[in-house]
Design a protein around this nucleic acid. Structure first.
Lengths: 226, 226
DNA sequence: ATTAAAATTGACCAATTGGTCAGGTTTTGC
DNA sequence: GCAAAACCTGACCAATTGGTCAATTTTAAT
């Protein structure tokens, strides 16, 4: 038997429950394909990724990939939507009622956790941005922009209340995103600099603290090492 | 006549001097191809780039591209070497004799200038890192690592002399590189956030100042807006 | 003027690409 | 237990890929 069958079967067989609910095959196979697609798109980019490579990594025949997602582009959009769903929401930590230093520090640490746990997702997003956001432009101009505008109001309110110094919100978020995502996207570079093939938990923690320290102090807030 | 001839001719015809020195055709065409390759590799990634697209952008037949560079991979390496040659050296600003605040601020501003002036180069490098540095791993482990180690000694000396606070050098440089290169690689995202299709000079200047402010204050140095 | 070296390129190739489809098997709802 | 829906996939296709090559023209040095 091919690895495909083994892998697919494993997915739910572990504990024998709900092995046969209505759409369970669809759900399982779509997840299998999305997972494989994330890997291939992350390492090869959109044009470099082939549906054959995705199918092989998913353990399914290529025709099956097209059966579930139609075209390569539709599959790519599905992967991107998955990622964006994952990333949005972490900004909820930043509200006017909260403490600026705590909120920013928590947000940075949460973002760094994403870089450590889902580096492939970050890489797909990085590819998409570098390529000019062909599939994401509307999202950037609408959802993301208004989300940042909303959080900008919080920062302004904090500054007006003397709770922090005034900082350009777009550049503040850009620095936070750039610095945290760097540890996913440029993992291999940082790894070479610290002399380890793979980054250790400590590396991510140290990185997060360095970023927290710079951002807090840059905003005129107190920072104390944990 | 094809556009190729026109374009190629233009390259040196502007002022009629040294139109025919020994290797001038080789030099001109290699430059034409490297330029086109940088564009295509930056927007399509390694696998997504086609030699046909590069040839068309250079205004030359595809066979000519292979005449000068042999294979697609050799051309890619040539582009990367061009980029690395461009990037190295800016770190010279950081020496023990200099002032920490001035040296770091100058370095950040210089790096941001590169992001503005050569965004495509930055994008090719970003692609290469995301893909796992297949063609650059040795450079990272040797040249780059020892360069950073060298600069780490400068930072330690500054800290030991009480001229700045102690900061992990790898993470300091990572933050600086990530933040500055972000404005080249994620140009389209920042553009959407500031509501402009293309970033203006002011955007880059504001960004640089925000980064300088965070880095200097994060290192316990004084920062005064220019 | 000669000629060797350099440069040019249309035509070609085997391999790979995203995508299709007909005919099959399995699952599901009743 | 049965029909419809969902699922599966080997075989196929036109287009594109990186790369080659032989024949030709242009350039450089004597």
């Amino acid at each position: 038997m091919s690895e495909a069958v083994t892998k697919a079967a494993e997915a739910k067989d572990q504990d024998g429950k709900e092995e046969s609910s209505p759409g369970h095959i669809r759900i399982r196979n779509r997840a299998l394909i999305l997972d494989a697609a994330e890997q291939v798109f992350a390492t090869q980019g959109y044009r470099g990724a082939t549906t054959a490579a995705i199918a092989e990594k998913a353990g399914l025949p290529k025709a099956n990939v097209h059966y579930y997602f139609g075209t390569k582009e539709a599959l790519y959009r599905a992967v991107l939507e998955d990622i964006l769903g994952l990333w949005l929401g972490e900004l909820d930590r930043i509200t006017e009622a909260g403490d600026p230093a705590v909120a920013l520090a928590d947000y940075i640490r949460a973002k760094m956790r994403h870089s450590r746990e889902r580096p492939l997702a970050s890489k797909v997003y990085a590819h998409e941005m570098i390529r000019g956001a062909r599939h994401t432009r509307d999202f950037l101009k609408n959802e993301l922009r208004s989300l940042v505008k909303e959080k900008a109001k919080v920062l302004e309110a904090w500054a007006a209340a003397g709770r922090m110094e005034s900082v350009d919100p777009v550049h503040l978020f850009s620095v936070i995103w750039a610095a945290t995502q760097h540890y996913a996207d440029f993992e291999v570079q940082v790894g070479a600099l610290v002399g380890r093939r793979q980054l250790a938990a400590k590396d991510y923690d140290d990185a997060a603290e360095t970023i927290v320290r710079m951002v807090l102090k840059g905003c005129g807030l107190n920072y104390k090492a944990p």
